[in-house]
């Protein structure tokens, strides 16, 4: 009886960590929604001004960057499926892919920022402030995700995960996919519309 209670407690704790991540992501929804909403209000007050700012943005390049982030999300689900099937090599290889693609995304964003600065766009401009703030905060989330992916990879190499114990990979995956979802929305409101 006591043993059973102990087992249930461990399982509950594992579920709690996943629930904790979902609660955190709910908070992130509010955070990013507020930023995006504030940006949209800026835009609505000066639509012509934003059209001028938007002329500096390269949609095809950011489209490729978006594809890179989506591909990284796909590799995250592949890594989770791999370890669920007991394949540590599959987990490791897909996580390496996630890290490479995440780094490529950040490189693409750095390239975009440098190009904008060279074109005379500043963080103190009317639209430069919200643009660099929101894309910068998102980029910071990607960077945090990259560091997290590296930690998960090192843990995987050390044999921390198995077919029966892969909660760490799953929780990292939730975070990474959410960052992907945020980018889907940012891509629409900042670049496409």
């Amino acid at each position: 009886m006591n043993e059973m209670t102990g087992t249930e407690a461990i399982l509950d704790q594992r579920e709690n960590s996943k629930l904790g991540m979902w609660i955190f992501l709910g908070g992130e929804v509010v955070f990013f929604a507020t930023l995006i909403l504030a940006f949209m209000l800026f835009r609505l007050r000066d639509p012509a001004g934003y059209d001028g700012f938007k002329a500096n943005l390269s949609i095809p390049i950011i489209g490729i960057n978006t594809f890179i982030l989506i591909a990284s999300s796909y590799m995250v689900v592949r890594s989770l499926e791999a370890i669920r099937e007991g394949s540590r090599a599959g987990l490791r290889n897909n996580l390496i892919g996630v890290i490479v693609l995440g780094a490529l995304f950040l490189g693409g964003q750095a390239f975009e920022w440098i190009t904008l600065f060279n074109d005379g766009v500043s963080v103190t401009d009317h639209f430069g402030t919200p643009f660099f703030t929101v894309t910068g905060i998102h980029g910071t989330h990607v960077l945090v995700g990259l560091i997290w992916a590296l930690i998960v990879l090192i843990s995987a190499i050390r044999g921390a995960y198995s077919a029966t114990d892969h909660r760490g990979v799953e929780i990292f995956g939730l975070y990474w996919h959410f960052v992907d979802v945020v980018w889907v929305v940012l891509f629409t409101f900042f670049y496409l519309i």
């Binding site: 996943k18 629930l19 979902w22 609660i23 992501l25 709910g26 908070g27 992130e28 929804v29 509010v30 929604a33 999300s73 796909y74 995250v76 689900v77 995956g173 939730l174 996919h177 959410f178 992907d180 979802v181 889907v184």
Partner: peptide, 24 residues
């Protein structure tokens, strides 16, 4: 698509979806 399938919200416990929905 990402939330329902990649994040497994479609097949996971409704409790997760409820807490996520609070944000919205």
């Amino acid at each position: 698509l990402v939330v329902l399938y990649f994040m497994h919200l479609k097949s996971d416990a409704r409790l997760y979806a409820m807490f996520f929905a609070v944000g919205f």
